[in-house]
Simulated scan of single mutants.
Amino acid sequence: MSYSAADFLAAFQRHLPTGPIWPREAGSTQAAALGCLMPTLERLAQRDANLLIDAFPATTVELLPEWQASLGLPDACAGTDPTIEQQRAQVVARLTDSGGASIDYFVTFAANLGYAITITEFAPARADFLCADEPVYDPFWAYMWRVNASAVTVEYFSADISFADEPLAEWGNAVLECEIQSRKPARTTVFFSYG
């Protein structure tokens, strides 16, 4: 529930001492003087109510720098000028990152960043392997895997999330590539396929 400046003025006046020098009428000088202070109380109450929304990393605005500082963000993976939504997604992805090397782990991590991906693994050719429809890979392919994503990820401006200085649309998968590269098992090589 949010309170208006008039609500705060009425509450304040109810707590004033009684007597002829403490008028409560709307047109009095005292009411006008107190009324000048009440918009500040209204603004502070609105900010207090917003604190619950702002404390959650997926919806934060004012506490975003604190979330980022606790996670060592922004870093090189964030790019040069990330939108507020990209910054939030990176915070959520880092907070929910439990670590791992499975396909499910990387798909879930990418989804938390805002990317829908699939992963392809490769296996080297074997003597009992029928290669009718499959390419024949040499033994080094056992350590290769591919991230498959849409051709270009587009993030559109959203009136209820974005800020006035953000672009109307932004294209690219640089954050995805950087985050996956930093988490891939050291013995493997990952490459990306778009489209």
Results as ranks from 00 to 15, higher is better:
S28R: 10
L168R: 01
L9K: 03
L64G: 00
V107Q: 03
D160G: 06
P20S: 02
Y115M: 00
Y105M: 05
L130S: 07
A159V: 09
Q46Y: 15
A45H: 15
S70A: 15
N173S: 06
V61R: 15
A31K: 04
S98P: 09
S193D: 05
P57W: 12
T29F: 14
I103D: 04
F157C: 04
T40M: 14
P17K: 00
D165L: 12
Q46S: 14
D81R: 03
Q90D: 04
A149G: 07
D160R: 06
Y194P: 07
P82V: 01
Q13S: 14
L63H: 01
T60R: 02
A101S: 12
F56K: 07
V154Q: 10
D104W: 15
F129M: 14
A159E: 08
A174F: 02
R43C: 03
L63C: 01
F122M: 05
L113Q: 08
Y143C: 13
T118D: 12
L44T: 13
A32T: 01
T29Y: 14
A169K: 02
Y156K: 06
F56T: 11
Q13W: 01
F12K: 04
W141C: 12
T120C: 09
A69D: 15
A111H: 09
E177I: 04
D75N: 08
P57C: 05
R88M: 03
G100Y: 04
V92N: 00
P82E: 10
A164M: 03
S28Q: 12
S150A: 05
S162N: 01
S182I: 05
R146S: 09
A132E: 14
P135S: 06
A76Q: 09
S193Q: 10
A149Y: 03
L51H: 00
